[in-house]
Computed example of a mutant assay.
Amino acid sequence: MVVLDIFAVMLLMGLVLGFAGTGGSGFIIGILVAGFAIPVHTALGTSIAAMAFTTLSGSISHIKEGNARLRSGLIIGAFGAGGAYAGTFLARLIAEEQLLWLTSGMLLLSGLLIWLRTSSVFPKKEFPLEEETVTLAKLRFWCLAIVTGLVTGSLSGIFGIGSTPFIQLALLVLFGFPLRQAVGTTMVVILPIAVFGSIGFFQAGYLDFTLLIQVVAGTMIGSYIGAKFTRRAPRLLLRSAMIMTPIAGALLLLVKL
């Protein structure tokens, strides 16, 4: 019964995550800790590993839908992978209650940043992106890719979250991506971050493979389906999903506290 409950919840969550272009690690942590009483470090390691599978499924769907820039996302994600792996070593030293507070606070900040950036507080007219081959040839792109990857990857490794709002914010502000391209490319960026973050937590003994299979079975299916609706969704609905996903995860963790 518990297995079926976890699968059903993760299937519904996967639909939201794929639609919003987020790996949803923070959301997964909140559900596992508050809903199924999983220890936070185990939930953290399991969720970031599940995020690798979720973002793989969602990335494929977003690429097919024309919502993602594959090479740009993989380059940023490669630098993020190094930051994520290093960050897991610090996460091991943080006590459970402190980690719950820190992770929930980071998720609330994530939602706030996305709300500010996509609101009229910072109006931004979207312009078509230049050809990707032109972008990759610029030094500015590589400097931004290194900083963005290392910072967001480190946050993922330390707090067990995908840093989705931070990545989306960077793609919107620093790289000038339109909203839908930012959503899709974010999933590509998260993929290597999640893989190397999960390796770090596995080495620390915080990865539950039985739980991982249950989580992945639901989120991969849901994420692939959810990504199909991103391109067709009204901007307001897409923006709302991006904002509420990290906030919902934070509230679940605060309920546990």
Score class of each variant (00 low, 15 high):
Ile114Glu: 00
Thr54Pro: 02
Leu102Gly: 12
Ser110Cys: 08
Leu108Val: 13
Leu108Arg: 02
His62Ala: 08
Ala34Asn: 13
Ala68Pro: 03
Phe27Ala: 14
Thr22Lys: 01
Ala81Cys: 02
Ile114Val: 12
Gly23Ile: 03
Met51Ser: 04
Thr118Ser: 04
Leu136Cys: 13
Ala43Asp: 02
Leu99Gln: 05
Phe27Tyr: 10
Phe53Lys: 09
Thr42Pro: 00
Ala43Pro: 00
Val134Ile: 13
Leu32His: 02
Thr135Phe: 04
Val121His: 13
Thr103Phe: 02
Leu74Pro: 01
Gly35Cys: 09
Gln98Ser: 15
Gly30Gln: 06
Ile48Cys: 08
Ile28Lys: 02
His62Thr: 03
Ala137Lys: 13
Phe141Val: 12
Phe127Ile: 10
Ser110Asn: 05
Phe141Leu: 11
Thr103Ile: 09
Gly80Cys: 11
Arg69Leu: 15
Leu99Ile: 09
Leu139Val: 14
Phe89Gly: 10
Ala49Gly: 12
Val121Gly: 00
Leu116Cys: 13
Ala86Thr: 14
Val33Asp: 01
Ala49Val: 10
Thr22His: 07
Ala91Arg: 00
Gly35Pro: 04
Gly24Cys: 07
Leu113Met: 15
Glu65Pro: 08
Thr22Gly: 11
Gly87Phe: 08
Ser57Thr: 10
Lys125His: 14
Arg71Cys: 11
Gln98Thr: 15
Leu93Trp: 09
Ser59Glu: 04
Phe53Gly: 11
Ser59Gln: 07
Leu90Ile: 15
Glu126Thr: 07
Gly83Gln: 05
Ala50Lys: 07
Thr54Gly: 13
Glu65Arg: 15
Thr103Asn: 06
Glu97Thr: 14
Leu116His: 10
Ile75Tyr: 06
Ile29Gly: 07
Arg71Asp: 02
